[in-house]
Design a protein around this nucleic acid. Structure first.
Lengths: 204, 204, 204, 204
DNA sequence: AATGAATGAGCGTTCATTCAT
DNA sequence: GATGAATGAACGCTCATTCAT
């Protein structure tokens, strides 16, 4: 299935992946049949199996590309600052913006992560993102910017806040990414007991 | 499908729900066929449809029962304290213990929440849990125990931390519920910048 | 299945047959399940199989009873006159009245006659009715009241007119039995070319 | 289910419709399973659902095509004469010939007309045929060829005679269409009391 | 590269019937 | 007599995948 594709072939493949992602996000992976995808695109079944070994492979390709793209965005946003806490905040912000721009893919991630079969196949990518976050947390602890603790746990807490707020406020309520990012950052900074303040929270 | 069941009938139904929950958690809802369930239990197919209108209805019944049970546990744990922050912490702890005792159901919640069809059907239950949390957050703000802010957002942040840590450390790594609860509570209390301390974190 | 039934048993059986006939007429024989019948009557499945050997046997019993009852009515109406043509007209009228009073059973006859399995089982009863009609036709020919011809063909023509008008005007349009009977009688008497007249036709 | 079919596809569909019609006529619609049809044709199940949306849709397609074809035959036979009574007689004759050539479809019509579900779906087609007949009857009345009366009732009487004689003598006894047509025409012309004669009746 | 046609195992579900109580 | 529970073959239908053209 490693075809050398012409320019036209690459475009076809793109269209197929985009169209399938939308359908998967709307109706779910299992309920969306290959027939639906090819009919929706007005092509024959052969086209699908020319570009993808299977329906499963299609989803994995969509997912892996998305993981890569999101990570690139996070890194390009985080990379510049010298303060690790700043970098974490940039990462949260980058994540929110990316998710807001790719709601379909957010849905797909939700599905895949919860899925017995696809969940484990997402691990490598998630581990990468995870160690990105952890690196900054660790650095922040070493630098004394953040109290000592288990960086793995703290990183997961950050990810938990970020993802859940994205789910609720971006996927569910279509709030502006900036506002959701601010909310996540503020909670991650100081939790419940710390002083709320600064830019405040514009959600709702 | 509202049958008046004998004692034997009720037991059968229980067995079916428990067995199905395990299978759904192990292999996923879609990949688990009704045939697999009844064969696994050594009964005829008719039995299944004697107790449940459909495979879907079975899942919903499992899910609704689980939501109810978890909420009962949270409330019985939270109810006694006069301090709203204490109550929130009790709620987090109750959640962790419940999830640790019902890993299968945690898996099922993950799946259902991410699912295009079942997700929305979980809403009523989730809204109830949500408003439980929010009530305490609001009270804590009014009492000055917690800086003012949007209680809806703050509640979701708490839920995000709790669920994600549960996912990673209880479902994925089978850590003791108490430790995971402590970790969640500590992060929720003071976020990144607050002082880490107290009982410390025993995860890993 | 030849049970000696108590009084209560006979009533139960009656109720079952009446209820089933209604349901069969409304929704069709195949689409109506035994479960539907017993649930509709609020009894258990056992009751059904106590009174009937099978669903098929139930239908046959309904049908045979109906054939018998209709024939009794035709004969009691026809029997008195000395003119065979009068008797034929009385038969048509009796048929229309009976069908109007038993629309459900008319539906069932329609179904059963068209059915590959039940059709042939209705033969004995239909043959009886047929020879009733034929006897009068033959007599009328012998008496010179009606031109000679094949009494079998003529009898079927009469039956065709009667049944079809019943189907259309009694089952479909709920016209009064008397009017439909008049219409059938008039057409059977003189066909297209004969003089229309007498009481006229009140249909529509 | 509006597929653009290749030549091969059209032939397959034809074969399926013909084969299914035969089976339905032999064993009945409900008792004939899709599996039986595809096995009888030696193809996979998918083939069936490639050409038809459902078993029901298949029957409807068969039925509608048959209605259309029969009506075409009636009209081509009736169209030429200037005398409306002649046209009615041609219509009866055309019907008998068509039914004799399509015994399977006659069976299917019987079933469908008596069926709670399919009966109503046949209405449009039957209404068309009905108004064809009525037009001629009305014209005959206006022209004084036939005594005045309700053309709707008279038309239904004609249809009743024709269909019933077809049922008995063509479907049941395989008599020649010409003889059955003659018998129907004669009865419709002059009923019971008119003079029998002319070509006489060759049935039996 | 692409098509329409075909495959067939497997799905969720139904239902006439039987049975233990 | 009557019940709720159970059976299991059969049903209509789906769908990822393959194939001939």
């Amino acid at each position: 299935m490693d075809r050398r594709l012409t320019q036209r072939g690459k475009e076809r493949k793109r269209q197929l992946m985009d169209f399938a992602a939308t359908r998967f996000a709307e109706s779910g992976y299992h309920p969306t049949s290959v027939a639906e995808i090819v009919e929706g695109m007005g092509v024959g079944k052969g086209v699908f199996y020319w570009y993808f070994a299977s329906k499963e492979e299609l989803l994995l390709e969509i997912l892996r590309e998305a993981q890569l793209d999101m990570r690139r965005r996070q890194q390009s946003e985080m990379g510049d600052s010298t303060d690790p806490v700043d970098r974490l905040e940039s990462g949260i912000r980058a994540t929110m913006y990316w998710l807001a721009e790719h709601r379909d893919l957010m849905s797909l991630f939700e599905f895949a992560q919860a899925d017995e079969h696809f969940g484990p196949l997402l691990r490598p990518g998630r581990d990468n993102s995870m160690s990105d976050v952890m690196r900054h947390v660790q650095e922040a602890m070493v630098a004394g910017r953040v109290p000592n603790g288990d960086p793995f746990v703290v990183s997961h807490a950050i990810i938990g806040v970020t993802n859940h707020l994205a789910r609720v406020f971006i996927l569910g309520r279509e709030e502006p990414a900036e506002d959701v990012a601010q909310a996540a950052i503020m909670f991650c900074r100081s939790g419940l007991l710390g002083q709320r303040g600064g830019t405040g929270c514009r959600l709702r």
